[in-house]
Design a binder for these strands. Structure first.
Lengths: 256, 256
DNA sequence: GAGTGGAGTTCCACATCATGGAACTCTTCG
DNA sequence: CGAAGAGTTCCATGATGTGGAACTCCACTC
């Protein structure tokens, strides 16, 4: 890491390093943070940051820290990063829908939230409704538990929200629950998000083997009560099939 | 535009120009495209593109053309560009829901598609269902007509899909319809997407005055039939209020 | 299979352009 | 009011990026 084995690109490399540092950090970085992280002299850092800001690759927030610039925002308005995932997952989700008759969901982590990116509706009259983009605390849904268990999302700082008397709010109890879920390959909830609502979910792995999403179903607790094990295993299988698909079809790299 | 009034940043500026060109183009650009677009000598272009690729700011697709690199993708997985819009729009949408009782939707353009980014459900039993992220031809929905009318999305190349006998598939007729919608400030559809389904929508403007989204309702045609005018004007008002909010709250720049 | 042209990479002498230490300018805080 | 911190500007220096030309690698064509 002394001198890159390349030539004629010092300035560009350094500039790119600054941009990459900001984007990967995913939180505003101050001038000093950046200077330290990249190990560049003050004057160089200053000159480059100014140029990058002018070019819209970076931008300063109200407090003067650097964040990803308008070009990144523009890119995000035009590209759905989960498009491919959803496309590849659709057949699997349909099959799960046929298997169980329940509402099927695919969740990923966006920032520090769990979001639903695709859904197949229940065939029953009584079913979970438009779930997409609903913001639900991770520790209270099966999908969330999967993503938590594999470290795709982190628990929020403060108290864990108690949504029903059954919501697990004790961090230690939750840790055990998550560990178990990881061990057996699927997670479940019963009445923890809403009385009467149960969910079961399993991890989906990306091309690098890292967990990128959770595949799950949800429905009325009475209907799922006795099929937990069976559905859990089924989901786990289906999720693994999907993971196989992704391994073959996805772009080279995963998430940082 | 002869010489930028800045100094000591030629390399970075040029590199940034290459990246910006690729991101804004939003389609794979060949080496030659880039060289031409940026007016740089071959050797410089080559050296820089190699460096940018190494830094993950750019990436080459299968056919060797350049596209936005992994850093952009990473950013997109973490940030929802419509988060702010949805947050600001929520109260307005709720109000529209109360006004009309119908399903309320907020749509934007992602790439060349119209996507729903937020929804308030109908209070009626008979209502439009989970609509979010459903892919519907722009010319057959009111929301789509608004975005088409203001040039936020473009019509697809080939034949316009005929979904019902009432779908407008004649480009000239559609052009007139869109012009009228723009003139009066709202668009509507009746049985053009699905028999029995009607929709009404109005444009929402961003901080720069450009149309960035469409606010609309949809419901059974019989229920909307006679209230078209009234709801259209109401929606237009609400959308304008929302636009006012955005003007004050949104980041400096809009869309390219 | 030699011949041609287009597309992109590598080379290298040159001087332009980025470099970074130091001086300078604002703020902030004691 | 003085001192320290944070960031910008200056400028002499030479390392670094530059770009024309030569070169390589295809993909076609006759």
């Amino acid at each position: 890491m002394t001198t890159p084995p390349t030539t004629g690109t010092q300035a560009v490399d350094r500039a790119a390093l600054l941009v990459a540092t900001v984007v990967r950090a995913d939180e505003p970085l101050t001038f000093a943070d950046l200077q330290a992280a990249c190990g560049l002299p003050k004057s160089t850092t200053s000159r480059m940051l100014t140029a990058l800001e002018r070019s819209e690759l970076l931008e300063r927030n109200d407090s003067g820290s650097y964040v990803a610039g308008p070009l990144f925002w523009l890119y995000a308005t035009r590209h759905d990063p989960w498009e491919e995932l959803v496309r590849l997952a659709r057949p699997t989700m349909d099959r799960v829908g046929q298997d169980t008759g329940e509402t099927v969901n695919l969740s990923v982590c966006r920032g520090d939230r769990v979001v639903q990116v695709a859904q197949v509706d229940s065939t029953y009259l009584l079913g979970t409704r438009d779930w997409t983009a609903v913001d639900v605390p991770a520790h209270s849904s099966a999908l969330g538990k999967v993503l938590l268990g594999y470290g795709v999302v982190d628990l929020p700082k403060g108290e864990l929200e108690q949504l029903t008397p059954y919501t697990i709010t004790d961090r230690e109890a939750l840790r055990r629950e998550l560990a178990q879920a990881v061990r057996r390959g699927w997670a479940s909830t019963a009445d923890e998000l809403e009385i009467g609502l149960s969910g079961i979910a399993a991890p989906v792995r990306g091309s690098g083997g890292e967990v990128v999403a959770a595949l799950g179903i949800s429905g009325p607790s009475p209907r799922l009560q006795d099929r937990r094990e069976e559905i859990g295993r089924k989901l786990s299988d289906r999720a693994e099939q999907l993971s196989g698909l992704l391994r073959r079809n996805t772009r080279k790299e995963g998430v940082a």
